[in-house]
Amino acid sequence: MKIRNLFAVITLLLTASYQLYAQTDTLWKGFKRHDFMVAERKCILVSPQSDAPGKPWI
């Protein structure tokens, strides 16, 4: 299930890469938050402050 969710997020990000110019950057609990639209749906991406050891998501 986690792999499917990760795949969905990556697919959305790649699909939306050309639409990032319309994003809004804010903070969420001290983390950088990016709000943008993909296929007329609101999307939220929260970035970590630093990489996790071993970069487990790559």
Rank of each mutant, 00 (worst) to 15 (best):
M1G: 12
M1A: 13
K2V: 06
K2E: 00
K2W: 02
I3H: 04
R4W: 11
R4A: 09
R4L: 05
N5A: 15
N5Y: 08
N5L: 13
N5E: 12
L6A: 13
L6R: 06
F7I: 10
A8T: 12
V9Y: 03
V9T: 09
I10Y: 12
T11S: 14
T11N: 14
T11C: 14
T11H: 11
T11Q: 12
L13V: 02
L13H: 02
T15N: 06
T15Q: 07
T15P: 00
T15A: 12
A16N: 00
A16D: 00
S17C: 15
S17P: 00
S17I: 14
Y18E: 08
Y18F: 07
Y18H: 13
Y18V: 10
Q19V: 14
Q19N: 15
L20I: 11
L20V: 10
L20N: 13
L20K: 05
Y21C: 08
Y21D: 09
Y21K: 02
A22I: 03
A22P: 01
A22M: 04
Q23C: 12
Q23R: 11
Q23I: 04
Q23M: 13
T24S: 09
T24C: 06
D25V: 05
D25Y: 02
T26Y: 00
L27K: 07
L27R: 05
L27H: 03
W28S: 07
W28K: 07
W28D: 09
K29L: 12
K29F: 04
K29H: 11
K29R: 15
K29V: 03
K29Q: 15
G30C: 04
G30W: 01
G30S: 02
G30I: 03
G30V: 02
F31H: 11
F31V: 02
K32P: 00
R33Q: 05
R33P: 03
H34V: 03
H34S: 07
H34Y: 05
H34I: 05
H34D: 01
D35M: 05
D35Q: 07
F36S: 02
M37E: 15
M37A: 07
M37T: 15
V38M: 04
A39W: 11
A39R: 15
E40D: 13
E40W: 05
R41C: 07
K42R: 15
K42D: 10
C43D: 01
C43Q: 01
C43Y: 00
C43F: 00
C43R: 00
I44Q: 10
I44D: 03
I44F: 07
L45F: 09
V46S: 06
V46C: 06
V46W: 00
V46Q: 09
V46G: 04
V46P: 04
S47T: 08
S47D: 11
S47Y: 01
P48R: 05
P48G: 09
P48H: 02
P48T: 06
P48A: 11
S50K: 14
S50R: 15
S50L: 08
S50W: 14
D51V: 10
D51I: 09
D51N: 14
A52D: 13
A52P: 00
A52C: 08
A52N: 09
P53R: 14
G54C: 07
G54R: 00
K55E: 09
K55R: 15
K55N: 13
P56D: 07
W57L: 08
W57M: 08
I58K: 11
I58S: 06
